[in-house]
Design a protein around this nucleic acid. Structure first.
Length: 561
RNA sequence: UGACCUAUGGUGUAAUGGUAGCACAACAGAUUUUGGUUCUGUUUGUCUAGGUUCGAAUCCUGGUAGGUCAACCA
């Protein structure tokens, strides 16, 4: 086969609009290199929406040989906590990114204060004594102009004095604010004398009690970007209307001209993305924590079995644009299957067991069957799986009255036990309620390993575990995770409670703990993360099977509709 | 009813004045030691009305629809 390395065939070069801007800036010499930043407020855990932003900011810098800072936007002490700082750092690292510098908006408080003084001296900021209510009332509405504050024309000296005393702690919360002097009739509400500083006597997670005045987002963000020489400040669409203000501060302060660019935030079907709602789910114990596998948080997805590679692939696939979007959850699921399918070793696990006794098999015999670890990767090798007279199969793999194209086990029907034998169902045993509780089968000893010397074909192949070697665990866990509304499909204004099953945590605990006790200590961590297995457990395997179950369920549902 | 942003198959995203392409989803077939994977094929789209142009998804104007903004949140 001949290849032309320069051709790069099949690979279409597609730039998103941010890449186009960056390439143009680099080409024109506007910037020699680029510096982006990821600026979370440490007031909650990162979710899949943040992952898109992280992949964008870090990915863009990587692609163009630049760097990315991690900056915590910690300008509101009452909402923020170091717990969140730590989790955010963990999640970013887990996703596979390394920041150039770890910074905090609170590092800039002194500089920001000095700049506020500059604005005051230029006659561009003033201290307002109005109450919060008065300020709200005089701001006007989207269609009506606001009214000037009676304190708007204070002298520079008086403003300096008052602002100094605000910092010194002479006033109570809410008594005074520092506002920019712009235009109370501006069509953009954000430009109607925005508040720069407010008084908050609260303990800050980093600066402690040093400050009692705190800058607002609009006053802190652009200048923080500027201090760090951020070239491309990339944020979501709702900050679009803030850009004129962002530019105004930079212009008036005559500092490094960082620029803000906006993109559409990620929305996912069936998924709650609002930090406020997620916090509520955690606080009210509707989930076991921020890392509950049903949560759309990065740590939740991690526990659900997602890999960083899959999440990065997802971020790549969803694209970047300025149009509001709702991505199908199926794309995220496709990404994890795509990733795991290539690299995860396969293991057999039965989630919803049905006992099968192979009557023709010797009572005490145990055979070690050869099983392929990963059909997609021969280098992954093989392993031995114990087989014996009594096994469990998946309940879904048997039907007493099968429809026409059902290839798995049914009375009188032959099926292959993967890596083991062909078996034929000879008897169905039911309990008093008519529920199938056990199957009796015979095996073909010649089909050891899964092939018959006479070349006859069986259409179905099913997985199994040897009962005496199995580790028992709760099969319902998996079921719960998939039958409950995924990550909370909660319509606006509805009660979360009706959408999450409060029993699931109890169930998990009740069944997981005895199972854990049966497992060698060194393997517990893996096991705990994934849930459950009868034998042959492994976290990666769980991920694969986990995603595979969804697919099979879908297929089955369709066949029966 | 103010300012700003947006409009391409079911869902996303390309095409930057010259053949509407790609991915997910859906559907059909082939292969298969799991109805998975893999491979092949199929269906479905430029919000609307004008204008400019040899030619418009693309440029202009009007309309329509959706979103954002009236926290001392970020």
């Amino acid at each position: 086969m001949t290849t032309e390395p320069d051709k790069n065939e099949g690979e279409v070069k597609v730039l998103n609009f941010l890449e186009e801007i960056i390439e143009a800036d680099l080409k024109s010499g506007k910037h020699k290199s680029i510096l982006t930043r990821f600026p979370p407020e440490p007031n909650g855990y990162l979710h899949i929406g943040h992952a898109k932003s992280i992949c964008l900011n870090f990915g863009l810098a990587q692609k163009y040989g630049g760097k990315t800072n991690l900056r915590f936007d910690d300008t509101n002490p009452v909402k923020e906590d170091t717990e969140y700082v730590d989790s955010i750092k963990d999640d970013i690292r887990w996703l596979g990114f390394q920041w150039a510098e770890e910074l905090y908006a609170s590092d800039y408080f002194e500089q920001l204060y000095d700049w506020a003084m500059v604005l005051i001296k230029k006659g561009l900021a003033y201290v307002d004594d109005q109450t919060q209510e008065e300020i709200r009332q005089t701001r006007g509405t989207v269609t009506e102009a606001g009214k000037n504050s009676p304190y708007r024309n204070r002298s520079v000296e008086e403003n300096i004095d008052l602002f100094t005393r605000m910092r010194a702690g002479e006033f109570k919360d809410g008594e005074r604010v520092l506002r920019a002097k712009l235009d109370m009739a501006h069509p953009n509400m954000l430009m109607r004398d925005p508040i720069l500083y407010r008084i908050i006597h609260a303990h800050h997670h980093r600066t402690g009690d040093k400050w009692c005045i705190y800058p607002m987002y609009d006053y802190a963000h652009g200048q923080s970007d500027s201090i760090e020489n951020i070239t491309h400040s990339i944020c979501t669409l709702e900050f679009d209307v803030h850009r004129p203000l962002y530019d105004w501060f930079i212009e008036k302060l005559e500092i490094f001209p960082s620029h803000q660019y906006e993109f559409a935030r990620l929305n996912l079907t069936y998924t709650v993305m609002s930090k406020r709602k997620l916090l509520e789910l955690v606080k009210n114990n509707f989930v076991s924590g921020w890392d509950d596998p049903r949560m759309p948080t990065i740590c939740g997805l991690r526990r659900r079995g997602y890999t960083p590679e899959a999440i990065r692939m997802f971020a790549e696939k969803v694209g970047v644009a300025k149009r509001d979007n709702v991505i199908d959850l199926s794309l995220l699921e496709w990404c994890i299957r795509e990733d795991l399918n290539k690299r995860a070793n396969r293991y057999m696990a039965v989630l919803n067991p049905l006992k099968v006794v192979i009557t023709s098999y010797p009572d005490d015999k145990v055979e070690m069957m050869d099983a392929v670890n990963n059909p997609e990767d021969a280098a992954a090798g093989t392993r031995k799986v114990p087989f014996s007279k009594v096994i469990y199969i998946e309940r879904d793999d048997f039907m007493e009255n099968p429809p026409k194209k059902y290839f798995r086990l049914a009375p009188g029907q032959e099926v292959r036990l993967r890596y083991a034998y062909f078996i034929t169902c000879t008897e169905v045993i039911k309990d008093a309620n008519g529920e199938v509780v056990e199957l009796r089968c015979t095996h073909d000893p010649a089909s050891q390993g899964g092939n018959s010397p006479d070349g006859r074909k069986v259409q179905g192949t099913i997985h199994w575990v040897s009962a005496q070697h199995a580790v028992e665990a709760d099969v319902r866990l998996f079921d719960r995770l998939f039958t409950e509304p995924h990550m909370g499909d909660i319509p606006e204004g509805e009660d979360y409670k009706s959408y999450l099953n409060p029993d699931s945590l109890k169930t998990v605990k009740a069944y997981l703990e005895p199972a854990l006790a049966a497992i060698p200590k060194e393997e517990k961590v893996q096991f705990e993360r994934i849930g459950y297995f009868w034998q042959d457990y492994d976290s990666t395997a769980a991920k694969l099977i986990f995603n595979r179950i969804v697919t099979l369920k879908d297929t089955w549902a369709k066949m029966n509709k």
